[in-house]
């Protein structure tokens, strides 16, 4: 307990930054992933190819490498300048971490959404068209509600993975829970105990998400 209380100045901001990274990257990757999924099921071949290419590359590259690219190779593109971040180095690297996490996770979100849409039988859409529903009505009241059932449980897994992946930013100048222990060792604290507190923090966040996922899975599997 002492390790936690004596170093609240590390743990507090560390945990808060983790949650902040997670929430923003989650929102970003849900939006981008859905757009990508739209591309992947679109009737235009080139859109499908672009979506597939993106997903194949991002899914098969270690996240660390994506971080590496954005921290060291991306600045060479000179799209953004370090000065654009109000002169704040923390904001600069935080943005890179967000972009890396969002781009990487969106590839997984895309796959979840796409397989969710694919679980809806074609007959459902055909029937709704036969009833004269518009595209919007068909999507809103027939296809998406059915797809949601198949999407939400695996999406929870993706989001849990994202939460845990935020720790990788430890090596890229973003202070969050993954970097706490690196600072503790300089203070001469017991690393093992320090790390166990970090582990506990994640367990407290993840276990409710897992339980929710399980109960949703169970309820919907009966309903189908």
């Amino acid at each position: 307990m002492d390790v936690l209380l004596d170093n609240l100045d590390l743990y507090g901001p560390g945990f808060l930054n983790t949650i902040e990274l997670f929430l923003i990257a989650a929102a970003g990757s849900l939006v981008l992933g859905t757009i990508l999924a739209m591309l992947r099921v679109s009737p235009v071949p080139i859109f499908r190819a672009a979506g597939t290419l993106y997903v194949t590359i991002l899914r098969n590259t270690p996240l660390t490498l994506v971080f590496f690219f954005f921290a060291f190779a991306f600045p060479l593109l000179k799209i953004v300048d370090a000065a654009d971040f109000g002169g704040s180095a923390a904001a600069y690297y935080f943005t890179f971490a967000l972009v890396s996490l969002t781009l990487y996770t969106s590839a997984f979100v895309c796959e979840v959404v796409r397989s969710g849409i694919n679980t809806v039988p074609v007959g459902q859409a055909e029937a709704s068209r036969a009833l004269g529903l518009t595209f919007g009505q068909m999507l809103g009241s027939i296809v998406l509600p059915q797809a949601t059932r198949a999407v939400v449980p695996p999406m929870m897994s993706t989001m849990i993975a994202l939460l845990k992946n935020t720790t990788i930013a430890a090596g890229f100048s973003v202070f969050q829970s993954g970097s706490i222990s690196l600072n503790l060792s300089e203070r001469g604290e017991n690393q093992l105990i320090g790390l166990l507190w970090v582990a506990l923090f994640f367990i407290i966040l993840v276990i409710p998400m897992t339980l929710l996922q399980r109960s949703l899975e169970k309820r919907w599997s009966i309903a189908r």
Binding site: K164, I168, G178, L195, F202
Partner: peptide, 10 residues
């Protein structure tokens, strides 16, 4: 539930 980075650090 525990991130792999934290596991490896432990």
């Amino acid at each position: 539930a525990v991130p792999l980075v934290v596991l490896i650090f432990i």
